[in-house]
Design a protein around this nucleic acid. Sequence first.
DNA 1: TCTGAACAACCGGTTATGCGAATGTACACC
DNA 2: GGTGTACATTCGCATAACCGGTTGTTCAGA
Lengths: 116, 116
Amino acid sequence: MKQAASFFKVLADEARLKMLWLLFNQKELCVCDFMAVLEITQSKASRHLRTLYKAGLVTDRRAGQWGYYSLRPAEDFLTRECLETLRTAFTSNAEAVGLLKKLAVWLEKKSEAGCR
Amino acid sequence: MKQAASFFKVLADEARLKMLWLLFNQKELCVCDFMAVLEITQSKASRHLRTLYKAGLVTDRRAGQWGYYSLRPAEDFLTRECLETLRTAFTSNAEAVGLLKKLAVWLEKKSEAGCR
DNA sequence: TCTGAACAACCGGTTATGCGAATGTACACC
DNA sequence: GGTGTACATTCGCATAACCGGTTGTTCAGA
C-alpha cells in the first residue's frame, strides 16, 4: 500500500501530469519540447522527468547530446489502469486538448527550422 | 489538470489509502475505528479524515458525540474510475486483506463490549 | 582545441505536509 | 454541575517537495 501511495505521489503534480499527457500523444519528446510547450524552465523540466523516470513511468534514450523520453508500458495493474483512466479523462479536457495543439505547433516550427 | 493533480495529492498518503480501503468494505466507521485498526493517534486519524472530506471523497454524519464517516459516490469520471481501480488492486493485496481481518476482529470486540 | 547546445545535478530558499501534544467542544451519564 | 468520552482544531516543529539560478558534463561542429 506504501507503493500505491508513492505512485500517486508521482501523479500529484500538475507539471508531471502534463508531461505524461504529452507522452500519451507523442511517442518521443526531448527536454526542450517540454520546456517550450509547458513554458517551464529547463531545470524544472529535467527534475520532473527524473521523477517520472525514477518511478518507472518513462524511459530515456540518449542520442548525441539529445535526451529523448517516452512512455514505458506499465507492468503493474494499478499503474496501467490509472494512466489509462487519466488519458481518457484528459481527452475531453479543454486545457489538455489545448496543450496538444500547442505541441503540434511547436513540433511544426521545430521541423521547419530544420533543427530536428 | 490542476484539479486532477490535487485529487492525486489526496491519494498520495498511505494512511488515507487505508482509510478509503476500509470504507470500501464497511459502510460506516467512526474515528475510533480507524485509530484502532490502523494503530494511529486520534489527531492523525481526524486530520486525514478531514482531508478526505474536503476532497469530497467521504461524508460525515454526527450522532451524539460520535462521528461516522462513509464513502461518498464520486460524480467525477477520474475519481470514480481511480477509486474503483484502487479497490480492485487492493483486493489482491496481502496487507490490505490483513487490514480487513483486523477490522473484523475489532468490530467484533467492540460489539461484544456492548458499546455499539 | 575551443565554443556552444542540450541536458543533468547541485544549492539555498520558500512553501507545503505531516506529526504528536495540548487544548477546545459537544454531549452523555451520574 | 462535574466527570468522562469522542472527537475536532490549533500549535510548534520537523521533514519533504518544489522552485529558479548556477554549475557541471557530454558531445557536435568549427
